[in-house]
Design a binder for these strands. Structure first.
Lengths: 197, 197
DNA sequence: CTTTTTTTAGCACGATCGTTCTATTTTTCC
DNA sequence: GGAAAAATAGAACGATCGTGCTAAAAAAAG
């Protein structure tokens, strides 16, 4: 049975995730959220039983959005190189697509939580490892399909791909570099070229 | 004339910078600093006239430390490729070298300030652009020395180098990946190889 | 030494934080 | 419809925040 509370919770999480992409997970506050959403602070609090509870739900919500915005659609592309290209395109556009005011939610969370032990950090780490493993799997497919030669190290490939995306985020958001898109594409093509059979 | 205040200020900044690498620039608070350093909150406050003032000084302090720990020593290496390698080595070790408990201070600051307009962000952007320009200059020297071929795009090179460092930071701090060092070295050598004349 | 300047401490302010408790309203079930 | 359950609001708590004001202590200057 779908309850009213579930809808409200979803609405809160939608806003909280976008807000967290700006101010960080620790920057979230019930007072601010309540004001933005025209709810009482205590009413909002009752939905998640603590700030940590809210932060965990926000992490889960963001991961779901990422899956349905980036991963799932890209899986429709043919295995191997085309799928990898689809992922790259959608990944790069995902902060805009998901209307994250503060850029990629996970980039913010990663630098914020990397030195704060606790369940939130643990959850993020496990999510990120899943994502890296998914990426490595796509690279392995590209090798199996004969698109990439067999000497390609999938983990190394993913490491460099991730670096490229981080540099892109940094260039766009902090430096406002208009050439950021071209830079990312060039780096991606270079990475692909080196892996080609 | 050197005053007592300057020494105290330096001591505060030393601690504040390390703390900010963990909790971020916005995570700094006079109360916390005062407790850590056994000073009164108001006495500490008097040294910087506002939280923004403290944050600006912390940014400046971190930049000075970076210059003397990474840039200056690396400039002793011969122009071109050797100097680039010296920078890479020192850059990678600098969070440990400078005893930043929370990893590279600037990585944290970059993701934190990228969507908060103000003087702190402006200062950080100008610092980062300086650093990128320095790096591009070293790459240009490598071309001039004949170490790199003339088709190398210095800005593109720096973009990929920066991405590699960001991925390294991410792998070490969030994922605790023991292979992070090897991954960074491999990516760096690949970047060098592609640029070689 | 004394005087002046600088540095530090103490205290209070309004604001906001996470959280708890209780009451009221709204939704759900029969 | 009414009864039970769920969702929301209101007020208050102790804590911490940045900041200002005032006084005492320490350092620098003569």
């Amino acid at each position: 049975m779908i309850q009213k509370g579930d809808i409200t919770r979803q609405l809160i999480l939608e806003h909280a995730t976008a807000l967290a992409s700006q101010v960080g997970l620790e920057g979230l506050s019930f007072g601010r959220l309540a004001e933005d959403l025209d709810l009482s602070k205590s009413g909002l609090f009752a939905h998640f039983k603590s700030l940590q509870g809210l932060q965990m739900k926000v992490l889960e919500h963001a991961a779901e959005r990422f899956t349905e915005t980036v991963i799932r659609p890209a899986l429709k592309a043919p295995r191997g190189e085309p799928r990898l290209r689809a992922i790259f395109d959608r990944w790069r556009r995902w902060p805009k697509e998901s209307r994250m005011a503060g850029g990629c939610f996970f980039v913010a969370a990663a630098t914020e939580l990397d030195d704060r032990p606790g369940p939130a950090r643990d959850l993020l780490v496990s999510q990120q490892k899943d994502w890296l493993e998914t990426l490595a799997g796509v690279v392995r497919s590209a090798i199996a399909e004969g698109h990439f030669h067999r000497r390609v190290d999938p983990e190394q490939f993913v490491y460099e791909l991730y670096g490229l995306m981080l540099a892109y985020h940094y260039s766009v958001r902090l430096l406002n570099d208009p050439k950021a898109d071209r830079r990312a594409e060039t780096a991606f093509e270079s990475l692909m070229q080196r892996a080609k059979a």
